[in-house]
Simulated scan of single mutants.
Amino acid sequence: MKVLYQTRYNIFERKGGDTVQILKTKEFIESRYPHIRIDIDSDPHADLSSYDMVHIFNMLRPQETVLFMENARKQGKKTALSTIFWRSTEFERHGQIGLRKWVNRMISYDSMEKLRGLYRYYVDGEKHEGTARLIRAGYTRLQRDILEQADLLLPNGEGEIELIRRIFRPEKQLEYVVVPNAIDAGIFACEPDAQRRDIVLCVGRFEPRKNQLNLIRAMSGLSYKLVLAGTAHETQQQYLNAMRKAARTADVEIVDEMDHVELQSLYGRARVHVLPSWYDTPGLASLEAAVSGCNIVATTRGTTKEYFGDDAYYCEPGDVESIRKAVVAAYEAPFNRQLQENILSRYTWAQTADRTVEGYCRMLDRKEPEVSAG
């Protein structure tokens, strides 16, 4: 089987959770199923003649996804879609900063996305047919077109499918296989050592959606040290400056993005990992931190409760006091080994690979291959 992965053009320049998801899914499928080969190409006009199917990622950027979908349909190839979907209305109206926040409060969600499309088309270099269509047809319409054309959906959780049904009310039955977000157990799993854990940690891109600014505010007055690890895109320098300014009132250290080896060491120092995002599905850093011996504070938005159940501490992203209380509760509690065991048993990249291949074979009406003994 030969599969082509297609996703946003800046997947490697502006890295995020979807970057890790794509690379790790490819790595583990090819290692577990030697007869499956995967290529990655963001060309919306790619020649698909040598591929059995196309796997497309991310409904949140429909201006690109719809072009991949239509190219596959034109060339007679079936498509699987990793939805990576959440509706960000609340974030745009309450979690954004500056002028964008106030404009978003006065207009509809689709109008908001059209404005973003106009910015991308005329300012951010995304001057292509997909962005022009988003501006003309609307964000929701483009997402609905994508759903109608996809042969199989691969959401990260049941919550994504429920939200898709509620928003789009699709006429056809949605064929889907839940494929979990995951961790590399060989890198991050370790025994907790409470004696050397004395920091609160947050790993993630520095941006309003990840909500580090409210986390810094929540830490003010607490005796814990907060370490923020990540990087800010050039469009988020205003937010990073606001973080630095707020950090003067608390014990906060801001460090650059790290590789897996450095990150493993940082997780080993943390007693608590916090991701108070405006939405997450569920946040790869939370999964990594949990198996690395940290208690977890997670947002109530997204699919976090589907993954962590009662084994995490939850906070309201817009409520600084809620974040503070969750951090204190998690810091003062003993390590929750049940959460670590649950993630290791259910949310590893090997399982992600197996569920993804199960979906491919179902869609192509093929017998599932056996996992390689090697």
Results as ranks from 00 to 15, higher is better:
residue 162 E to C: 09
residue 137 A to G: 05
residue 169 R to I: 12
residue 158 E to K: 08
residue 146 I to H: 08
residue 144 R to V: 09
residue 145 D to Y: 04
residue 138 G to P: 04
residue 161 I to Y: 06
residue 141 R to S: 14
residue 139 Y to A: 02
residue 159 G to P: 02
residue 170 P to D: 12
residue 145 D to L: 05
residue 184 D to W: 10
residue 163 L to V: 05
residue 184 D to C: 12
residue 149 Q to Y: 10
residue 174 L to H: 01
residue 142 L to G: 02
residue 180 P to Y: 09
residue 190 C to K: 09
residue 176 Y to F: 14
residue 186 G to S: 11
residue 170 P to G: 06
residue 185 A to Q: 14
residue 142 L to I: 14
residue 168 F to G: 06
residue 172 K to H: 15
residue 179 V to H: 01
residue 143 Q to H: 06
residue 153 L to K: 03
residue 154 L to F: 09
residue 178 V to L: 04
residue 164 I to P: 00
residue 180 P to Q: 05
residue 162 E to T: 10
residue 179 V to D: 02
residue 156 N to H: 14
residue 169 R to C: 15
residue 191 E to H: 04
residue 158 E to T: 13
residue 155 P to M: 06
residue 175 E to G: 05
residue 181 N to D: 13
residue 185 A to S: 15
residue 157 G to C: 12
residue 140 T to D: 09
residue 167 I to V: 15
residue 177 V to Y: 05
residue 161 I to M: 12
residue 188 F to S: 10
residue 139 Y to I: 03
residue 182 A to P: 07
residue 142 L to F: 10
residue 164 I to T: 00
residue 180 P to T: 00
residue 190 C to P: 00
residue 162 E to N: 12
residue 175 E to F: 01
residue 175 E to N: 12
residue 159 G to W: 06
residue 149 Q to C: 11
residue 170 P to T: 06
residue 167 I to Q: 03
residue 149 Q to H: 09
residue 168 F to S: 05
residue 152 L to P: 00
residue 186 G to F: 13
residue 157 G to F: 08
residue 149 Q to M: 15
residue 166 R to N: 14
residue 154 L to V: 02
residue 156 N to Q: 11
residue 171 E to G: 15
residue 150 A to H: 06
residue 180 P to V: 00
residue 176 Y to D: 06
residue 176 Y to R: 02
residue 192 P to V: 11
residue 169 R to S: 15
residue 152 L to C: 08
residue 164 I to S: 00
residue 157 G to Y: 09
residue 192 P to N: 09
residue 143 Q to E: 14
residue 186 G to W: 11
residue 145 D to E: 15
residue 187 I to W: 13
residue 179 V to T: 10
residue 152 L to A: 05
residue 149 Q to V: 05
residue 186 G to C: 11
residue 189 A to M: 06
residue 148 E to W: 08
residue 187 I to E: 12
residue 165 R to T: 08
residue 145 D to T: 09
residue 137 A to I: 04
residue 138 G to M: 01
residue 184 D to Y: 11
residue 151 D to P: 05
residue 159 G to D: 12
residue 176 Y to M: 04
residue 164 I to E: 01
residue 163 L to P: 01
residue 180 P to L: 05
residue 171 E to D: 15
residue 185 A to L: 10
residue 151 D to V: 03
residue 141 R to F: 14
residue 175 E to M: 08
residue 148 E to S: 13
residue 151 D to E: 02
residue 147 L to C: 08
residue 144 R to K: 15
residue 152 L to S: 03
residue 152 L to Y: 05
residue 169 R to A: 15
residue 178 V to H: 01
residue 153 L to R: 00
residue 183 I to S: 08
residue 174 L to E: 03
residue 169 R to N: 15
residue 181 N to I: 14
residue 148 E to T: 08
residue 171 E to H: 13
residue 174 L to N: 05
residue 143 Q to M: 13
residue 168 F to W: 07
residue 164 I to H: 00
residue 146 I to R: 01
residue 147 L to G: 03
residue 176 Y to E: 03
residue 163 L to T: 02
residue 174 L to V: 09
residue 158 E to G: 05
residue 183 I to K: 00
residue 187 I to A: 12
residue 189 A to H: 12
residue 179 V to P: 00
residue 140 T to I: 08
residue 188 F to V: 11
residue 143 Q to K: 04
residue 154 L to D: 01
residue 172 K to Y: 11
residue 138 G to K: 00
residue 159 G to T: 11
residue 167 I to G: 06
residue 190 C to V: 11
residue 160 E to N: 06
residue 167 I to K: 00
residue 156 N to S: 14
residue 168 F to M: 07
residue 168 F to R: 01
residue 189 A to W: 07
residue 157 G to D: 06
residue 170 P to C: 08
